[in-house]
């Protein structure tokens, strides 16, 4: 009985304040979409880190014909220099830091290059001689890159030592930046949402002050009087959160796992099911914020 009554009150409150309720729904929708997008970016970063960090290598590039580095003054790396480097890699001082290493000759480099850029006209303008041979080193701990770099970059015949991880780090820091920006926008929007919910509840309480006055007089409990208002705000915010969740899921399903994954075949994207982990967080966040802001508003504007 009381439940039905409260539901009826909520219904009439939502109807009376329809335009305000819709704006609450939209603002929470947009703000939580940004929150969720930031979350998705973080998930994507973690996913890519896990995937790439196993694969990335430190490459020690050897001098070739066109090298201009100081270590390459004597021309392309000789067989002797190459053997010398291999011996160093096998020495215990270096070996403790690395899992294994391979040598990639110029011919192999050319083959990989052709595979990687098979669709691009650049392949035709590059010859085998222009590509450097390299040692590809898998580190035990990628953080120890500095040691390898210091050991090898000054050796004769070495053009440069590059850490592929650094390239990735740049991408990740860019993605991190984007997720921070999304959180910033989300924070502003959430602030708007809270203010809007506060105003809506205030209006709602004002437009129903007759009812609440009578309820108070005949001894209705605080819960019965306040709950319809609080739930009104919470329902609007939860609808917004649901819309945001659906939007994020659609984004993951049709954009990340559709277009983007077709364009970037060897990039691991988060799956749309993983996005569903974010949905409960968004709903709890939206509902919680709305509940708290309604409660605080009622404390000021609805005497019980």
């Amino acid at each position: 009985m009381r439940l039905l009554f409260i539901l009826g009150e909520i219904g009439s409150g939502l109807r009376r304040n329809l335009s305000m309720v819709i704006s609450v729904v939209l603002v929470t929708f947009v703000s939580l979409t940004f929150v969720g997008a930031a979350g998705m970016l973080q998930m994507q970063i973690n996913q890519m880190k896990g995937y790439w960090y196993d694969k990335v290598q430190v490459a020690v590039f050897l001098c070739n014909d066109g090298s201009t580095a100081v270590g390459c003054a004597s021309g392309p790396a000789t067989k002797e220099q190459q053997d010398n480097l291999q011996a160093m890699l096998e020495s215990p001082a270096v070996k403790q830091y690395i899992n294994d290493f391979q040598f990639e000759s110029q011919a192999e480099a050319y083959k990989h290059f052709k595979e990687q850029f098979s669709n691009s006209p650049i392949v035709d303008s590059v010859s085998q001689d222009q590509l450097p041979a390299s040692f590809r080193i898998n580190m035990k701990n990628p953080e120890k890159y500095q040691i390898i770099s210091e050991t090898f970059s000054s050796q004769p015949g070495v053009e440069t030592v590059s850490d592929q991880r650094q390239v990735l780090e740049r991408i990740f820091s860019w993605m991190n930046g984007a997720s921070v920006a999304a959180m910033g926008v989300a924070a502003v929007m959430i602030f708007c949402a809270v203010l809007l919910i506060t105003t809506t509840i205030r209006l709602s309480a004002f437009s129903r002050r007759r009812e609440t006055g009578i309820m108070r007089l005949v001894g209705a409990s605080k819960t019965v009087i306040q709950l319809p208002f609080i739930l009104e705000g919470v329902i609007a915010a939860v609808v917004g959160a649901l819309l945001a969740s659906v939007t994020l899921w659609l984004m993951a399903h049709f954009w990340l796992n559709g277009d983007l994954s077709r364009q970037f075949l060897n990039t691991p994207f988060i799956s749309s099911t993983q996005v569903l982990v974010i949905a409960p967080v968004l709903i709890a966040l939206g509902g919680g914020l709305a509940g708290i802001s309604s409660l605080l508003t009622l404390r000021r504007y609805l005497k019980v």
Binding site: R2, F5, I214, M215, V218, G219, A220, S221, V224, I225
Partner: peptide, 18 residues
Amino acid sequence: LPQKNVFANVAFAMQVIG
């Protein structure tokens, strides 16, 4: 309550206390 009839106005006092 202007939008409720006589019965509903009186019943309101009972509804809100369950």
